[in-house]
């Protein structure tokens, strides 16, 4: 395939085009990806997650700038939310990556999550493959950041940086968000705000009691706008990657995560299928009606509906 050749020769426009084909779910796109597979896997995949306004994009801008000074070939995937009301999206992360945008060889792709759960888009994993085949050896993936649990971001990256700000709220919020358990590195950004070192202590305490792996999760103060703490973050990200490789964890974790991601996608597929095929059928609608009229109880209705879709179970 011509597009595959071009990507392997480093043609950005072709890589960008293929990403679009994956976003549109085109078979030719999947076919191209399968041809690229032998050339994938070579990059250090770093995910960045955190609440809206925590400064993820600015952090990525600085990370990319500094990584590129170390000779890294960088790809950035910035995922923005799709409006549930209008189905449209304003892809604004890129604007916060002005410095990175002007460095030759840094490829930035914005992507709307299009309702996909878990903080990433359906096309994210495909895009990772494409950028690796394009020759990128460091990927920075910014999750949607809509404040909910962003489980899937951890399945597409090797190192996950979770970003907080000193005003992250009390400890309960923290555990509820469940974000801390996901991170390999924690950055307390906007560390010029009051309470930064307290937050650092709090989170350190929480992390140490909950961590049962051989990797000590570092908690780092950063001030992305000024570039403070970026070098430390890079150092930690690199030593985390080294840790994975030295302990033969990289491939093991990648395949475990891939399985998780696959199951999550599968769930979406099954759901989509059920909604398209079944939810409009009359026997299905009858069940709804019966519940409404109190002719059957709710639990029985669920079980009957389930039997309709999966008669064998």
């Amino acid at each position: 395939m011509e597009i595959v050749e071009k990507i392997l020769n480093g043609n950005e426009a072709s890589a960008a085009k293929l990403i679009s084909l994956i976003e549109e779910g085109k078979d030719e796109g999947y076919k191209a990806i399968s041809l690229l597979l032998p050339y994938t896997g070579g990059a250090h995949r770093i995910g960045i997650t955190g609440a809206p306004g925590s400064g993820k994009s600015t952090l990525i801008d600085k990370l990319a700038t500094n990584f590129s000074k170390r000779g890294k070939k960088i790809g950035i995937i910035a995922i923005d939310p799709t409006s549930t009301k209008t189905d449209g999206a304003l892809l604004g992360d890129r604007l916060r990556m002005r410095d990175a945008e002007n460095i030759e060889g840094i490829f930035i792709r914005s992507m709307a999550h299009r309702g996909y759960p878990g903080g990433i888009a359906k096309a994210t994993i495909g895009t990772i493959y494409i950028l690796e085949a394009l020759g990128k050896d460091l990927l920075l993936i910014e999750s949607v950041g809509i404040g909910q649990t962003e489980i899937n971001i951890s399945t597409v990256c090797d190192t996950l940086i979770t970003v907080f700000t000193p005003d992250y709220g009390d400890e309960i919020q923290l555990m509820k968000a469940g974000m801390i358990e996901l991170g390999d590195i924690i950055a307390i950004n906007k560390s010029d705000m009051p309470g930064a070192s307290n937050a650092q202590q709090d989170i350190k305490g929480h992390v140490n009691t909950n961590n049962n792996t051989t990797w000590d999760i570092p908690v780092i103060l950063t001030q992305a706008q000024k570039g403070d703490g970026i070098e430390m973050l890079i150092e930690k990200a690199e030593s985390h990657f080294k840790h994975l490789k030295e302990n033969n964890l990289l491939e093991k974790l990648r395949s475990e995560k891939l399985k998780k991601l696959m199951l999550s996608f599968l769930k979406e597929e099954i759901w989509a299928h059920a909604m398209n095929k079944w939810a409009k059928k009359s026997e299905f609608l009858n069940i709804f009606e019966m519940v409404a009229k109190k002719e059957i109880d709710f639990y029985k209705a669920v079980s009957e509906a389930s039997n309709l879709i999966f008669p064998d179970c």
């Binding site: 409006s83 449209g88 999206a89 304003l90 892809l91 604004g92 604007l95 002005r98 914005s110």
Partner: peptide, 16 residues
């Protein structure tokens, strides 16, 4: 215009 196109269901990037 960027906001209007978003509301029309499109994916919009503003260059700055």
């Amino acid at each position: 215009v960027a906001q209007a196109l978003k509301d029309a269901g499109m994916e919009v990037i503003y260059s700055g």
